[in-house]
Design a protein around this nucleic acid. Structure first.
Lengths: 140, 140
DNA sequence: ATGGGCCTTCCAATCATGGGAAGGTCAAGG
DNA sequence: CCTTGACCTTCCCATGATTGGAAGGCCCAT
């Protein structure tokens, strides 16, 4: 199985497979006499594992840890759970941040006529936030 | 006002101010005889505008458009609103994606004992998702 | 033996930000 | 006057994950 076939079988782009190898996320593939990378079914399984973990938003660093635990038949599930929950916490934090952005902007957009006149609450917010004035307040 | 003072006044890091100038987001600052950048109150206002827009998650590219509209006294608010809503749509899409990730992972983590035994639904999901095959070899 | 489709490596770009080196400038104090 | 330290300047590099391209080699089929 060469890299193109492994890519199709795993769903991971060939370019990305080489990158994953270069950073040590996956072991170095074997080579043919001509230098082509060769993949076994087991290596494709690892690639699929990585693919699924990326789909769930895990960072490469955490995936590296997860792959290590996956291969360790004597791992403690607590460690896996800890890593997963760390990731969930980060996701929730980012979601909350983006939720706040979206809500603020939606409100401003709702208050904006959206016609050909120049008056615009969105621009007013952007220019006034942080200046010493009604309700926004600003440090120093 | 030199760049350090402008940074304090606007909340934008001096390093970032230089970057914004280099990519043309803000106009080139004036210079003293010695080559130091000089900022006026108006330029600090632009920096604050940019800062606020970044806080709301706008990309530099969109901020460039917003700054242009802000300076154009004859802009149509519809254009500002359109840009804002485009951004909101992107935020909502990312939020939905991350929400799905977090929910899936939370479920898997809930199903995981999290003790020192190796059995772990999280790893089972990662290795089995999309796999329809039988090979149960050890990872190399 | 030629063409097309694979493979290889290396280099660069993305987006916004931060870090650091090497060197010039300014203000204060000895 | 000279030193010291805090600031400024430019330039290069790194991040994370991915994608793109160029230049060249390999394999298979016609």
């Amino acid at each position: 199985m060469n890299i193109g076939e492994a890519a199709k079988a795993s769903g991971v782009n060939a370019k990305l497979i080489r990158y994953y190898e270069s950073i040590g996320l996956i072991p170095e593939a074997g080579r043919t006499a001509a230098g082509y990378r060769v993949y076994t079914a087991q290596e494709v399984r690892i690639l699929r594992f990585v693919k699924r973990a990326r789909t769930l938003g895990f960072s490469i660093e955490r995936i590296q840890a997860l792959v290590g635990l996956w291969r360790d038949k004597h791992r403690a599930s607590a460690e896996v759970k800890r890593i997963a929950l760390e990731h969930v916490d980060e996701l929730e934090a980012k979601i909350a941040e983006m939720r706040a952005m979206a809500d603020t902007l939606r409100e401003l957009a709702d208050a904006c006529h959206g016609d050909d006149r120049p008056d615009c609450p969105i621009l007013r917010d952007l220019e006034e936030a942080g200046t010493a004035c009604c309700g926004h307040g600003h440090p120093a």
